[in-house]
């Protein structure tokens, strides 16, 4: 039996229409002027969904844009993966709702999975596995996140970073390698560094009831996102360099052979330091957070979508991708466009 390969066919993205710029944030947090927010985060504008707008709405719109732009026939999709941490319902899954809204066939696999900033690379792996094991020829991978719903209004450390967005990627069977080997990191010991304590079935456990303590002047409650920024930063400093090295080794590549490096767009400060630490040349390092911010599982596909549209990334190029965050978890792979 000939080897089966997968590749990224196309990517699209969607931002909700409401904007949150640095001037508005500086009004809320006078100790952080707009120019300081831009200099430290690299973010000028975040897009925020309306109160009634959900991850399903954003994800379906991204998929519709993908189908329209690439003239993709919805019935050609064999599987749908939907990555979000804030699904519309505890049940049913967003993937089943999206299957119906997008007019996909009913004889397909459709499922959600819950991951944050590593979610896109994990999704590529799941899609790659479905294709190379012969279970699907075309997989629609949707990422959609609406962190604005769980950010405390006065918590400047997260409101300056996060924005809402969605992406849709079509992964398909290929006759040459497109998506390469993966490297992984999973460590639940760090789970409480990035958490919404009162958000699931564990909301009444003692540790989650007490989680609103030490919120300082952020106004954060246990139902809001808590991010221990220094611990998350240390986690990335500790694991991303070895994650990238392991991924390159698995793919029998060196950094010299890679055309671009696209890491999760957490913030400019973090990426600048990671680039220095990993010795990634500036011209290979993709920065794409100025308009949109940290959109969690969407930053990598949004950057792919925009940079391909702009001609910065081109067919035939080899891109090193890595996502890292909630879990704590991380994943890296190499894709050939």
């Amino acid at each position: 039996m000939p080897a089966k390969y997968s590749r990224i066919h196309s990517v699209a993205h969607y931002f909700p229409s409401q904007e949150l710029n640095n001037d508005a944030l500086a009004t809320l947090f006078p100790e952080w002027p707009a120019d300081k927010i831009l200099a430290k985060t690299g973010i000028r504008v975040r897009y925020v969904c309306r109160e009634e707008e959900t991850a399903l709405d954003l994800g379906v719109e991204a998929a519709r844009r993908l189908f329209a732009a690439q003239n993709i026939e919805p019935h050609s999709v064999d599987a749908l993966l939907f990555c979000t941490e804030l699904p519309d319902y505890v049940l049913p899954p967003n993937a089943c709702l999206a299957q119906n809204l997008l007019g996909l066939r009913t004889d397909i696999l459709a499922t959600d999975y819950t991951l944050g900033c590593s979610g896109y690379v994990y999704g590529l792996s799941l899609a790659h596995g479905l294709i190379t094991s012969g279970q699907a020829k075309r997989v629609l991978l949707i990422t959609a996140e609406t962190y604005s719903k769980v950010l405390a209004p006065q918590d400047k450390s997260v409101r300056t970073l996060f924005g809402d967005a969605a992406s849709a990627t079509l992964v398909e069977l290929a006759d040459q390698p497109g998506i390469g080997a993966f490297s992984w990191y999973s460590n639940g010991a760090g789970a409480r560094s990035l958490i919404v304590p009162q958000s699931g079935s564990a909301r009444n456990k003692a540790e989650n009831r007490a989680a609103s303590q030490n919120a300082g002047d952020s106004g954060r409650t246990a139902a809001d996102l808590f991010m221990d920024g220094p611990r998350i930063f240390q986690f990335t400093l500790d694991i991303v360099p070895s994650l990238l090295s392991a991924c390159l080794e698995k793919n029998a590549l060196t950094l010299d052979a890679v055309d671009a490096v696209l890491l999760h767009q957490a913030n400019k400060f973090m990426l600048d330091h990671l680039a220095h630490k990993c010795r990634i040349p500036a011209e290979k390092m993709i920065l794409d957070m100025e308009y949109g911010g940290n959109t969690v599982s969407n930053t990598i596909p949004v950057a792919l979508s925009r940079k391909i549209s702009q001609g910065v990334l081109q067919p035939g190029q080899t891109i090193l991708l890595a996502g890292f965050g909630v879990g704590l978890s991380a994943a890296a792979t190499v894709v050939k466009l």
Binding site: P230, F233, Q234, L237, F269
Partner: peptide, 15 residues
């Protein structure tokens, strides 16, 4: 001395 300064200190110590 805020969260951004802590990140700056971490980066410097790391380097």
């Amino acid at each position: 001395w805020d969260s951004l300064a802590v990140l700056g200190l971490q980066a410097w110590v790391d380097a």
